[in-house]
Amino acid sequence: MSLSPVEGVALAEIESDPDATMPAAKGVVGRSPGQLAWMRLRRDRTAVVSGVLLVFFLLLGLAAPLIEMAYGIGPREQFQNLLDGFGMPLGYAGGVTGDHWFGLEPNLGRDIFIRLIYGLRTSLFIAFAAALITATIGVVLGALAGYLGGWLDAVINWITDLTLAMPFLIIALALTPTITLRFYGERGQVSSAFGVGVLIAVFAIFGWTSTARLVRGQVIALREREFVEAARASGAGLGHMLFRQLLPNIWAPILVSFSLAVPQFITSEAALSFIGVGLSDETPSFGRMIYDSLDFLQTDPAYVFFPGITIFALVFAFNLFGDALRDALDPKSSR
């Protein structure tokens, strides 16, 4: 037995749940593990605040065309008349006015607020798409490797190691321009959808390994549990085993890793755009905006400030929420 008395007592509590024949005085009817986690999440103030912030960002991104309509200015509209002779916005703080809430870009004179909204949309789309794809690849490969084991496990492990051994940044730097060149040639106008697609593909190729390892480990731990054997003894097939028996028990870590992968992809997108292999200037995105703004760090600091603070708030909220989610789903591991 363990030395901790509290563990023993906790066990005693579980074992002595209210008698089934007694009236359900405590009102614990049918509370699923998911509902319990939801309750814990709602009690956590950090989770609530970061969650609300995330929902706000998501809505902003989703509603970008609507906001454009209400705001009355598009992301590619230029307001050269509001710039001075050197291409710097007139007025204070980078040209913040009632019409242009976050001011204007130097040189091109585009509205920063609406470009931020569209940048948010692009970044969130890329991050979510990449996270979804990597999670799917990771879950499928990890679950198959963990459950079936044997040579399949060996092969998948080998591929995982291979992927991890490849330097992400160098390959991305080398690959992205090459692919673009291959499809559009030297002078072709690269469509924004293509740029986004390439980024997601690069993330998908490199991003699935951690999820696959996580899922594999979890599945191996569960594989020998008796409820899995009970399903096998009843003649359940591979699909039932993986998706009905095993996956519901590893949703929690998958969800947490998903919620922590999204901000990682947001910053990666920004980083790639920043070093110039990401999106073109055509597509509004955080990385591109920060990259462009750096030239004006001295002359127009407001241009750096707005995209910088937004990406910081977004990533911070995601990470806080991911941690809170982990605590809620698995209260024992954290404290």
Binding site: P33, F227, A230, A231, S234, G235, A236, H240, R244, W251
Partner: peptide
């Protein structure tokens, strides 16, 4: 403790052999 899937309701656990077959 290990022989019942913690994420399934009792109804689903008992019905599993019926559904699988």
């Amino acid at each position: 403790y290990a022989s019942l899937n913690p994420r399934h309701t009792v109804g689903r656990i008992v019905a599993m052999p019926l559904q699988v077959n």
